[in-house]
């Protein structure tokens, strides 16, 4: 699966994908790949919420049925839609049905649940360039977004070398692998 499709899937998790991208995803030749990727992202999201399975929130099958029946979406969803940016694309009925068939109802359950919270979790765990208040006042923040290509490469090199040391010093097995791949894949 190419990077663009992955981005679409990721955007769909946050209910931010545009219609064209979703259609492209749905016409992707290898739907098994799409499904696997979707399920992995879903798992990640469950993990972030400390859930052990798709146990919370709105079930997709219900949402699709209601959309088909022309009924209103459940109230919590409608409320949330008002609180998030208006530009977010709402699922057209056809795309929802197809997507439901592709990923299966079980895997899709919960995709409408708490995307705002999810974004918050990622943001707070992430590069907090937008929230320097979280840093001790004595420490100046360097926003990775403002670094140029060469500087990013240097930063990535530091992360990578450190990850190599880290896997030795801390001896944490798979966590060591994960840090390495993360360091080599990102910055």
């Amino acid at each position: 699966m190419d990077e663009r499709l992955r981005e679409t899937l990721s955007a769909m998790m946050d209910d931010e994908a545009d219609e064209l991208s979703v259609r492209r995803l749905l016409s992707h030749e290898n739907q098994a790949d799409v499904r696997d990727q979707w399920q992995r992202w879903q798992q990640v999201r469950d993990l972030m919420h400390e859930n052990h399975g798709p146990s919370y929130g709105v079930d997709l099958a219900g949402a699709v049925r209601e959309a088909l029946d022309g009924q209103e979406r459940p109230a919590p969803v409608a409320e949330r839609a008002r609180t998030v940016a208006v530009s977010y694309w709402r699922w057209p009925v056809a795309a929802m049905v197809v997507m439901a068939l592709v990923v299966g109802f079980g895997a899709g359950a919960g995709w409408d649940a708490q995307p705002d919270e999810m974004t918050d979790v990622l943001a707070s765990a992430g590069i907090d360039s937008r929230n320097p208040a979280l840093l001790p006042s004595a420490v100046e923040e360097v926003a990775l977004q403002r670094l140029d290509e060469q500087q990013l490469r240097q930063m990535r090199q530091y992360l990578l070398e450190h990850a190599q040391h880290n896997s030795v010093g801390a001896g944490r097995g798979s966590v060591g692998y994960a840090r390495l791949v993360s360091a080599s894949g990102g910055y």
Binding site: I127, E140, Q151, M155, H162, H165, N166
Partner: peptide
């Protein structure tokens, strides 16, 4: 936990001063 310390002469590339966090 672990940390690594790098000490290098500044060559062509100018790096900013301060902290960045990734997780």
């Amino acid at each position: 936990a672990a940390f690594s310390v790098f000490v290098e002469p500044v060559t062509g590339l100018k790096m900013p001063t301060g902290a960045s966090r990734i997780g």
